[in-house]
Design a protein around this nucleic acid. Structure first.
Length: 510
DNA sequence: TTCGGAATGA
DNA sequence: TCATTCCGAA
């Protein structure tokens, strides 16, 4: 921005917070530190005074509504010294975020967009260090809360990227207290991270299962029969602003893995790229995140829990064929479940879902999701058949998943035929990706890792993605397979067969 | 209202 | 790279 144009440098009323360095252009123009539109949007979203102009959408995690487009545009224009700015232009800029997966449009809702925090944060805080507090993976994003601060644990020397650490957060932004040190809330954030970006950073690391997860813990895969118990994690909410995607679940003690405002449609589903929040996560006792069997086990476990407890997309579930995740004492108690009435990403009510859900979840949810019959072939109904509403909802909810899982191969659908996930294909090469060196992978992940050629022998999908134009990728993910989303949402673990085995193997080996 | 191509600027 | 600006199309 032009020097003299920082009228809104700190959005009116300035919260005194600032985005971490990484939040500013770093790659293209290292020195510019010019604020990006999404930063600005976040700023506004965090300011009470702009509530009337732009605000988090209730009930929708990470979703916000521009109540006064013109005003927002005006503010943006001021900030950028572009008096001619208008919503049309601003929205164009926002649309550019679609491809980057930073944002996406909430279809059907005017001026409503949704942040993909994973994309924003993940790359910057890869799932690495949790040592100090021994709690959460470092991937936790700075968490801007209603109070306009970033809740982020003191970065120890471990910042993922060497350039981000120091000065990233204003002193004030670091809540030294509980959050920072105990990383308790980090989890919350973690949850949101998972998404395309998660996949992205993971790509570099390739140790986190999410993408692998996608295929769903082997569920659905003929060859894989993970015997996983899906306990329910609980955790107290911590954030005051339930609207903020950064917020933690308002439900006391029942935050579940996702420390987000329990939204019926938690699309940003913080699922698994990260391990569940500290409170929920078994990681708590580990001093440093590394892929040792123990931790891995916990991690997987928690993910499994997430998938199950929140009906998250199975795709987010890590597949670890032979890995047995010991049941934690987090079985959902009747009362608890009652209390925790809102399920994240509830399956669409559409008949399709109903059918499936009923058939498989009826008896034993846990069993259903974990041992779900392997849908070696799942018939995909034409979109037209679907209940528009459920579709929409599904789409919304799954968008993120789709994105996160963006890496998930879609070949199956491509096959035509209407089968979403074809039978498993030959084991992916990347399955063997070494997860042995926890310190390496994660650290290098960058935001655009996804756009770069895979350096590591990762997933084929990655390659595919790499080759495929971003746009195409997105489209495929978002449009081409709503069914897949829906299906997966219902606990159908659609395993395309190209799932990674590396983790499982590694874990097992370990 | 939303999308996205294209040209252009910084 | 990240917008900004224009604009036609859906």
């Amino acid at each position: 921005m032009k020097a003299g144009c920082s009228i809104v440098e700190k959005p009116e009323g300035g919260g005194g917070y600032q985005f971490p360095d990484w939040a500013y252009k770093t790659e293209s123009s290292p020195g510019s530190r010019q604020i990006q539109l999404w930063h600005f949007i976040l700023e506004l979203l965090q300011k009470e005074e702009f509530r009337h102009v732009i605000a988090w959408q209730q009930g929708e995690y990470g979703e916000f509504v521009i109540k006064d487009p013109d005003e927002v545009a005006r503010l943006w224009g001021r900030r950028k010294c572009k008096p001619q700015m208008n919503y049309d232009k601003l929205s164009r800029a926002l649309r550019y975020y679609y491809n980057k997966r930073i944002l996406h449009k909430t279809k059907g809702k005017r001026f409503t967009y949704k942040f993909n925090f994973n994309k924003l944060v993940m790359p910057n805080y890869p799932f690495i260090n949790i040592r100090s507090s021994g709690v959460v993976p470092q991937s936790a994003p700075p968490v801007p809360t209603a109070s306009s601060r970033f809740h982020f644990p003191p970065l120890d020397t471990h910042s993922p990227t060497s350039d981000v650490q120091p000065g990233r957060f204003s002193a004030s932004s670091l809540t030294a207290g509980q959050e920072s040190s105990n990383g308790t809330e980090r989890k919350a954030e973690l949850s949101e991270l998972d998404d395309g970006s998660a996949a992205d950073w993971r790509r570099g690391v390739d140790l986190v299962p999410s993408r692998n997860t996608v295929s769903g813990g082997g569920i659905g895969h003929q060859k894989r029969k993970p015997d996983i118990m899906l306990p329910l994690f609980t955790r107290p909410g911590m954030y005051p602003d339930p609207h903020s995607p950064f917020a933690v679940s308002p439900i006391p003690g029942r935050g579940g893995v996702l420390n987000v405002p329990i939204s019926p449609a938690l699309s940003l589903t913080p699922i698994f790229s990260y391990s569940p929040s500290p409170g929920l996560s078994p990681f708590t006792s580990s001093s440093c995140f590394s892929f040792n069997p123990e931790e891995m086990k916990h991690y997987l476990h928690s993910q499994a829990c997430s998938v199950f407890n929140y009906h998250l997309s199975p795709r987010t579930f890590p597949r670890y064929p032979g890995l047995m995740v010991p049941p934690l004492q987090c079985q959902m108690h009747p009362e608890e479940s009652a209390q925790f009435s809102i399920k994240l990403q509830p399956p669409p009510v559409g008949r399709k879902n109903r059918e499936r859900v009923e058939s498989s979840e009826e008896s034993s949810p846990v069993v259903a999701s974990t041992i779900a019959p392997v849908p070696s072939k799942i018939k995909v109904e034409p979109a037209s058949e679907k209940d528009p509403e459920s579709l929409m909802q599904a789409a919304r909810e799954e968008e993120e998943h789709a994105q996160e899982e963006g890496t998930v191969p879609r070949r199956t659908t491509e096959g035509g035929k209407g089968t979403i996930f074809a039978r498993p294909t030959a084991p992916p090469i990347w399955s063997t990706v070494p997860i042995s060196s926890p310190n390496e992978g994660p650290l290098e992940v960058t935001e655009d890792s996804e756009d770069r050629p895979c350096k590591e022998p990762s997933a084929p999908e990655k390659k595919e993605d790499a080759v495929m134009p971003p746009k195409l990728r997105l489209k495929r993910r978002w449009n081409d397979d709503p069914e897949a989303r829906e299906l997966s949402k219902n606990g159908r673990f659609l395993w395309n067969g190209s799932g990674p085995r590396g983790l499982a193997t590694a874990a097992a080996d370990a």
